[in-house]
């Protein structure tokens, strides 16, 4: 039994570390399906398909709310006067050119839209996801004489203009997001797909 005395400590340490490392790899592999199970299911993804909206009855100054991917979408028409006034309050905005905000390339403009008259915005506040309320009347008693009209979030007081751009002093840091969308024809809006819009812009 002479070999009993000569314990190879280096070999023992190597085997211990190698076993622990192998077990660690195993844990990562075993955890993967459990972590992945939390991602949106195939059903949730399928229910997130594009939706179609009929705009023929939407008057300027009116707003429609649709739900796409569990998110309310605000769709409203702007009058030519409103569009003309949008650039006037750039100085009061955090991101007037939408350079830090999230929108498709074709909506990265002053109007934040494909067409100047139709605005399409994801109605969840970019702060923490409440629904900003419609405050379209300018010079609102609560929001001040220089209020140009837009939205105010009831949760934390973020304010947005009629292009969804955030005002200075709001807890939100970026403008309301714009979903991908396109127009099938003048009065038919498709939310969730922008193939036609991208081709049209190209």
């Amino acid at each position: 039994m002479a070999d009993q005395e000569a314990v190879d400590l280096d070999r023992r340490k190597f085997l211990t570390v190698a076993t622990a490392a192998t077990a660690g790899v195993g844990v990562v592999f075993a955890a993967t399906p459990f972590v992945a199970s939390w991602s949106p299911s195939e059903r949730a993804k399928a229910l997130g398909a594009p939706i179609t909206v009929d705009l023929s009855k939407l008057e300027p100054g009116m707003m429609l709310t649709y739900v796409w991917r569990k998110q309310p979408i605000y769709i409203f028409k702007r009058t030519p006067e409103t569009v003309a006034k949008l650039a006037a309050h750039d100085a009061q905005l955090k991101d007037p050119k939408s350079s830090d905000s999230d929108q498709p390339a074709y909506a990265t403009n002053e109007m934040r839209s494909l067409r100047p008259d139709v605005a399409v915005l994801i109605a969840t506040c970019t702060h923490l996801g409440c629904l900003p309320k419609q405050r379209f009347e300018p010079a609102d008693a609560e929001l001040g004489a220089d209020w140009p009209g837009g939205f105010r979030c009831p949760c934390h007081g973020s304010r947005f203009d009629l292009a969804g751009r955030v005002f200075n002093g709001s807890p939100a840091s970026v403008n309301l997001r714009v979903p991908p969308y396109n127009f099938e024809n003048d009065n038919t809006l498709v939310i969730g797909s922008d193939d036609a819009a991208v081709q049209g812009a190209a």
């Binding site: 939390w38 991602s39 949106p40 299911s41 949730a44 997130g48 991917r69 569990k70 998110q71 969840t124 702060h127 923490l128 996801g129 409440c130 949760c155």
Partner: peptide, 27 residues
């Protein structure tokens, strides 16, 4: 909605993390 969205402020991984916590595009 509000509490889960606090995670969306984490740079880079925030939006994906929020979707993972909710398991859908909204609560």
């Amino acid at each position: 909605t509000v509490i889960i969205n606090i995670f969306s402020t984490i740079p880079v991984i925030g939006p994906g993390l929020v979707e993972w916590i909710r398991g859908d595009y909204g609560v």
